[in-house]
Amino acid sequence: MSSDNAPFPHQHLLGIEGLNEFEIKQILDLADKYVEQNRRTNKKKDLLEGMTQINLFFENSTRTRMSFELAGKRLGADVINMSTSTSSIKKGETLIDTASTLNAMRPDLLVVRHDSSGAVKLLSRKVDCAVLNAGDGKHEHPTQALLDALTIRRRKGRLARLTVAICGDVTHSRVARSNIHLLNIMGARVRLIGPPTLIPTGAEKLGAEIYYNMEEGLKDCDIVMMLRLQTERMHGGYFPSVTEYFSLYGLDYDKLAVAKEDALIMHPGPMNRGVEIDAAVADDLTRSAIQEQVEMGVAVRMACLDLLTRTKRGVSN
């Protein structure tokens, strides 16, 4: 069965947990095709013509929201953005009321970001359309993990048996959680590197080796994934100072030297230069895949929008 009409057995994309290897591969294979489409002058398809996609962002976002918007538009959907600053959320409307209201407008796709873990799942129970999680609290950010996987697979040819180090503020990171799940499903080896205060309790049980020393953790890694230090989610005292943090856990050429020679550097953005990553490393086009990740993001999201509307469009037979 070609990936152009293969069915996708999920109504929503709420997280990586719950997907299997075949489904992830299906998304990545399709995304590969959209990468080609996006590199052409005419990037538009009419696959989702007549369908409505609402991007509902309860938390500020520029790049993810734009990426989803572009993905929807390139597939021909009508895309509407709604963010908390302009919506009735500010007037005290509950999440469930917002969901019911939007549902009554009969959208086909809802892309939701919320600052509370589980909020997107809660909302998905109250609507009839497909819901895509664009990040919920500290829980999951599935499309980020998928775009990371696509980036890695295109550079390294595979995901299985690669050693991937996820470094920094794991505790507050939904990106890290989605990546840990995805990389485990695809047979990669995951390491978490950070100060003990930023590695969540029980993280080793999620399928990762824990390192508190960056040099030890980076040794012989194929992929170095840096995380943004999310000070806005911290309630005091997780580390002494940015100076100390950068010195011990910031990625620079010295620390990178112990990783494999062709180790790929990734970051979900936005970056804090001089906090978790040295500016020169971030801008090193031979090592860094950070810009590529953004490009893959649009393609992966197009693949997800395509797959989640297949039943509705009647192509899944």
Binding site: S117, H139, R174, R177, T201, G202, A203, K205, L206, H235
Partner: peptide
């Protein structure tokens, strides 16, 4: 104060702040 469930693997999985 900031927690809402038992601290541990499940809290980490769900992305919820734990209470030890």
């Amino acid at each position: 104060r900031n927690g809402c469930m038992n601290a541990g693997e499940l809290a980490t999985r769900l992305g919820l702040p734990g209470i030890p």
